[in-house]
């Protein structure tokens, strides 16, 4: 039965990656496969390494590092997004967390995928040279966490009213973890080797302005809720190279931005990336609790193997068809084409 809800795409960020994320779709889902191949080929030597790491059950120590996680998340999420658009979904809005915001920008026409891949090569180079750092998720409000911050430590993300991420240099982050645990806070390390969304990476962000200036930027054709701004992205910011270059050093205002999106309209949130971290947070929002809005993930909530990934994708397609966002059966050919079913 068709509903009046529109579709909003959510793109997760650093920390959502897991070994073989979405690899179960490779060779099975045509658009996804072709897009991943395009990414690996465009990335040259890095692309060869990325392909091996992505398909490995036990990727190397760099898997959570900027040099692997960021280009892989960017490519995998873009390829998943292309798949959904290929089914005929016409999203009313997009919202990306961290590197997911760059995927949203690409799918909404701000930059091309080939430009995005070139920028990923630059990002790998600039950010790999930043001081060893990390990120810590804390089950507490930003206000409660802020009182304990020292030195390079900064609020990197506001994920929910009771979930805040801190980033900073490694030793300081370790000391903060001890302090917070002693005081009864629950904390868990985010899978990251750099202090993204903190002043620690501001120098790398500034150095990437040149690469962004060399790229053609256009206003988005689909409404883009920017977690950097906590607002809808306007044309001026969309075409400003410095806005995008500095985005990885600025806090991710995910919850306030999501709140704005959910207040603006009735939507079916679709998580376009590994896991279901963002829609799990979204389920705490009154708009989802009341049934006004709802959510579905394209992939399982946690790493579960290729069959579970294909099953989750089919279930998401069925849900989109049931709600009238795509024609019944529209997704089947692209999912079944390579498997010969």
């Amino acid at each position: 039965m068709a509903t009046t809800r529109r579709v909003a795409l959510l793109f997760p960020g650093q920390g959502s990656q897991y070994p073989r994320m979405a690899a179960g779709l490779y060779g099975q889902v045509e658009v996804f496969t072709d897009t991943m191949d395009q990414a690996f080929e465009s990335l040259g030597h890095l692309g060869v390494k990325l392909r091996d790491e992505w398909r490995s059950e036990r990727p190397g120590a760099l898997f959570d590092d900027v040099v692997r996680a960021q280009p892989l998340l960017y490519a995998v999420e873009y390829a998943l997004g292309r798949t959904v658009l290929d089914w005929g979904v016409r999203p009313a809005a997009m919202l990306g967390h961290s590197v997911g915001e760059m995927v949203a920008a690409t799918l909404s026409g701000v930059l091309s995928f080939s430009s995005g891949l070139r920028l990923m090569l630059d990002r790998v180079e600039q950010y790999a040279a930043t001081p060893p750092g990390g990120m810590l998720a804390v089950a507490a409000s930003a206000a409660d966490v802020t009182a304990h911050l020292t030195g390079t430590l900064a609020i990197a993300a506001v994920n929910a009213e009771q979930q805040t991420v801190v980033a900073g240099e490694r030793a300081e982050l370790a000391a903060l973890t001890r302090t917070l645990r002693d005081r009864g806070f629950t904390c868990v390390a985010v899978r990251a080797n750099q202090a993204f969304h903190s002043p620690v990476v501001a120098g790398a962000a500034r150095r990437s302005v040149d690469a962004w200036s060399a790229v053609s930027l256009r206003p988005p054709h689909t409404r883009l809720y920017s977690a950097r701004l906590g607002a809808v992205l306007g044309s001026a910011a969309a075409v400003d190279p410095a806005f995008w270059a500095m985005q990885p050093a600025a806090p991710v205002l995910f919850w306030p931005t999501l709140d704005l999106l959910l207040r603006d309209e009735s939507v079916l949130l679709v998580e376009v990336g590994p896991g279901q971290g963002l829609i799990t947070l979204a389920r705490r929002h009154p708009a989802l609790q009341s049934g006004h809005c709802d959510a579905v993930g394209l992939l399982p909530a946690r790493a579960a193997g290729p069959d579970a990934e294909l099953a989750a994708l089919r279930a998401a397609a069925d849900r989109l068809a049931a709600d009238g966002h795509i024609r019944p059966g529209a997704a089947a050919p692209s999912i079944e084409a390579r498997s010969g079913v």
Partner: peptide, 30 residues
């Protein structure tokens, strides 16, 4: 654990509903 997220509804039979579907991620479960 939800604290200020007071809107979370935990009524009805939630025994077999996943924590993720209830809005509790791994950090919230911890």
């Amino acid at each position: 654990a939800a604290g200020e997220d007071e809107s979370i509804s935990l009524d009805g039979d939630i025994a077999e509903v996943t924590f993720a579907d209830l809005g509790y991620d791994s950090l919230a479960v911890m």
